[in-house]
Design a protein around this nucleic acid. Sequence first.
DNA 1: AACTTAGTTCGATAATCATCAAACTAAAAA
DNA 2: TTTTTAGTTTGATGATTATCGAACTAAGTT
Lengths: 99, 99
Amino acid sequence: MDIELQQQAADDQRRIAIFKALAEENRLRIIRVLYQAQREMTCSEVGAQLNISKSTVSYHFKALRLVGLTNTRQVAQTKYLSLRSATFEQYLPGFLATL
Amino acid sequence: MDIELQQQAADDQRRIAIFKALAEENRLRIIRVLYQAQREMTCSEVGAQLNISKSTVSYHFKALRLVGLTNTRQVAQTKYLSLRSATFEQYLPGFLATL
DNA sequence: AACTTAGTTCGATAATCATCAAACTAAAAA
DNA sequence: TTTTTAGTTTGATGATTATCGAACTAAGTT
């Protein structure tokens, strides 16, 4: 098989994972909140602001981190999330500005 | 402000529908094929090129059309699909060029 | 040590979705 | 009229996923 086609298939899997992550209401709201806040936020802060149970927020935080849409900085048991601009620029340039 | 929030929620539903449509391997391949071909294509043509059964191609064509990612031009029983640039520009500016 | 805080994992449930063959519709061709 | 062509719909199946409470871990606090 062609190496370029293999690379394209791998890129597509990455794209699909990213689209799946964004194709959900609460995750999209989390992305917007992080984008508009322009700073790091914790699980509990986001959960309180969007009124989502903490287990669900944790679940979505993990999903966003796994596909590389967010950065996580951990201090003790607290995790601070922020957007990973590089991923948005590579796969969805211009998207954040449409929010 | 209430009205703005309602509008934002409606926009989000549109975004989610679009992301869902793109978060699937065969639909993403169809989008790429249409983008690179720079012309209209039929169900059977896409099915042959991507090796997908005709009922599945029909299913995906409908999904893409319903969320407004494609235009359909019908001539007798043949439907010609092409990308709807306006939707990409509004919700995913710069995305197609990353393919 | 006991308590609080922050977040994760588990179990169960409900919902959505991708796939294909088969049956179907509608139009063009023979 | 009969046949072919293009695409849709249906039904069944298997797979993934979003949600919550409850139980859990780990770190800080009193």
